[in-house]
Computed example of a mutant assay.
Amino acid sequence: MTQEPDRGTERESKNLDEALTTLMSELVRADAKANTVLALTSLGLVFLATRGGYGTQPRAVLVVGALGTSCLVIATVLLVITVRPVQISNPELEDWTRWATLEPAALLAHMRVDLRAKRVVALARLLRIKFRRLQYGVSFILAGLVLLMAAVVLSLVL
């Protein structure tokens, strides 16, 4: 009498593999987005830093411009934190950083355990944090741009 394979276990295994693949691609996507937005924000800050003639502007223009610049600086910090490697400090991911601490025999024993569910949970949490920081960073960029545009309008009006 042969035993049929457990269809539920096969489906769970396939679902875990698909979840890991999806999460890894989303991680790459989040980092790519954060890097692109970080580069653009950094260019904006370089432009603001190299622009001269601030002393001749009315105080209102300087205050609003400084607030806008502060928002861009905050966004830059958030985005740098977003693209910072986190796996090294996250033992829950059970990835290469964990494997690097094991001896070959311990690694083989470790590989016999199915940790995909644990990895899915850890990666999903990591992605939630990354996308939230990315969202906050973009919100600060938008606020900074609005304030900088207001400073430009004020400089034309005053």
Results as ranks from 00 to 15, higher is better:
residue 11 R to W: 10
residue 71 C to G: 12
residue 81 I to W: 10
residue 135 Q to A: 05
residue 61 V to E: 03
residue 114 D to I: 10
residue 58 P to H: 00
residue 145 L to M: 10
residue 70 S to V: 07
residue 29 R to K: 10
residue 96 W to E: 13
residue 103 E to V: 05
residue 23 L to F: 09
residue 11 R to L: 15
residue 36 T to A: 05
residue 80 V to G: 02
residue 15 N to C: 10
residue 153 V to N: 03
residue 6 D to S: 11
residue 114 D to K: 07
residue 63 V to P: 07
residue 8 G to T: 14
residue 109 A to N: 11
residue 84 R to V: 04
residue 106 A to C: 03
residue 12 E to G: 02
residue 23 L to Q: 10
residue 113 V to T: 15
residue 34 A to F: 05
residue 16 L to M: 14
residue 28 V to P: 00
residue 84 R to P: 00
residue 104 P to D: 07
residue 92 E to I: 02
residue 65 G to K: 06
residue 52 G to T: 06
residue 90 N to A: 11
residue 125 R to N: 14
residue 51 R to I: 06
residue 3 Q to F: 10
residue 11 R to V: 06
residue 13 S to E: 15
residue 131 F to M: 09
residue 51 R to K: 08
residue 99 W to C: 10
residue 23 L to P: 05
residue 87 Q to G: 14
residue 90 N to G: 11
residue 60 A to V: 13
residue 149 M to L: 09
residue 68 G to R: 09
residue 129 I to Q: 01
residue 80 V to Y: 05
residue 30 A to Y: 12
residue 21 T to N: 11
residue 90 N to Y: 07
residue 128 R to Q: 11
residue 63 V to H: 09
residue 59 R to L: 13
residue 142 L to T: 03
residue 126 L to V: 05
residue 66 A to G: 07
residue 26 E to R: 13
residue 107 L to E: 09
residue 129 I to P: 00
residue 26 E to Y: 13
residue 54 Y to R: 13
residue 91 P to C: 08
residue 155 S to N: 14
residue 77 V to E: 06
residue 150 A to M: 11
residue 9 T to I: 10
residue 38 L to Y: 00
residue 48 L to D: 03
residue 28 V to K: 01
residue 79 L to Y: 07
residue 132 R to G: 04
residue 31 D to Q: 03
residue 141 I to N: 02
residue 133 R to N: 05
residue 126 L to H: 13
residue 151 A to S: 12
residue 5 P to R: 15
residue 107 L to F: 15
residue 20 L to W: 06
residue 17 D to L: 08
residue 45 L to P: 02
residue 50 T to N: 13
residue 45 L to T: 05
residue 98 R to P: 00
residue 69 T to D: 00
residue 50 T to D: 02
residue 106 A to H: 11
residue 119 R to I: 11
residue 77 V to D: 08
residue 113 V to I: 15
residue 49 A to I: 03
residue 2 T to A: 04
residue 153 V to Q: 07
residue 120 V to P: 02
residue 51 R to F: 07
residue 120 V to H: 08
residue 98 R to T: 15
residue 26 E to Q: 13
residue 70 S to M: 04
residue 98 R to H: 14
residue 79 L to D: 04
residue 65 G to Y: 04
residue 53 G to H: 09
residue 105 A to Q: 15
residue 69 T to V: 08
residue 143 A to F: 02
residue 103 E to I: 07
residue 140 F to L: 00
residue 43 L to A: 12
residue 61 V to S: 06
